[in-house]
């Protein structure tokens, strides 16, 4: 199942293909000659040490930042060639949650979910409310959360509301930046289940950056390990945990990683 053959661009249906990405801030380069493919219908976890440029890579994927050099292809289209309206057309097919939720504080949860629908479609207001409520239910929030403001939500509900907004336009690709951060293990586990369930039910492609080893083992079909300024290795969690590179050893066989790897490999 894991496919590590030389990357080709022939498969236009790849949701994301990044080629020769180079990202520099001044003299400091965090990505150099980086290649990454995301396949349709998979959950790809992006892992790596803090500050290795996971979030930056995700931002380049969703056209919020541009790499210094290299090509980004979304659904087979060259992102560099797109004008603003073309980029917006692609962005409609991508749902995003940010590390800190980034819900609009002055709007209720239902209004937050309705924002993309109002801006991007000509659906009547009543239908938008109906759809927003459905998304709320899909992410497992109770209906009375609709009228609450983000500040009134718990951490877990906040993440779910952000996920509901990301799903508002029924995207093909869902990009999650550290979805489980700041949640207790139970809440993080429930969020993992939710992501798995939604991915299965809606046929989504999911890219998520994560630090959480449990969530990595539980959710990810494939893991891309970011190290030495490129994708050091990709494969299933089990495969990567058996690799010999020092960075991967440290991640999977370090004090925290080893117990998880043993437990999940046994399971």
């Amino acid at each position: 199942m894991p496919n590590t053959t030389a990357p080709s661009l022939a498969s236009a249906a790849l949701p994301v293909a990044m080629r020769g990405i180079r990202t520099c801030f001044g003299a400091a380069c965090i990505h150099e000659d980086l290649d990454l493919d995301v396949r349709p219908g998979e959950i790809l976890a992006l892992v790596g040490a803090s500050g290795c440029g996971k979030s930056v890579l995700l931002r380049e994927m969703i056209l919020l930042a541009h790499p210094t050099a290299g090509r980004v292809l979304l659904f087979g289209e060259e992102a560099q060639d797109l004008d603003e309206s073309g980029a917006n057309r692609l962005r409609r097919r991508i749902g995003i949650t940010f590390q800190h939720g980034a819900l609009f504080n002055s709007l209720t949860v239902a209004e937050n979910i309705a924002v993309p629908l109002k801006e991007q479609t000509r659906l009547p207001a009543k239908r938008i409310r109906d759809i927003a409520m459905l998304k709320l239910l899909l992410v497992g929030l109770p209906p009375d959360a609709a009228t609450k403001y983000p500040s009134q939500l718990s951490g877990g509900m906040h993440k779910r509301a952000a996920l509901a907004r990301a799903l508002a336009m029924d995207p093909d690709l869902l990009v999650l930046d550290e979805p489980g951060t700041g949640l207790d293990p139970v809440g993080a586990g429930a969020l993992d289940d939710l992501i798995l369930g939604l991915q299965d039910a809606l046929g989504l492609t999911v890219v998520m950056s994560t630090h959480d080893l449990d969530s990595l083992w539980r959710v990810a079909h494939r893991v891309a390990f970011l190290g030495r300024r490129r994708i050091l290795a990709t494969g299933t969690p089990a495969e990567l945990s058996a690799r010999e590179e020092p960075e991967l050893m440290a991640f999977f066989q370090g004090p925290r990683g080893a117990a998880r790897s043993r437990a999940w490999n046994r399971a």
Partner: peptide, 15 residues
């Protein structure tokens, strides 16, 4: 682990 699907289920591919 759920199986990988080659394409999204709900959108028609290849058209």
């Amino acid at each position: 682990m759920p199986p990988l699907r080659s394409e999204s289920r709900h959108k028609v591919a290849g058209q």
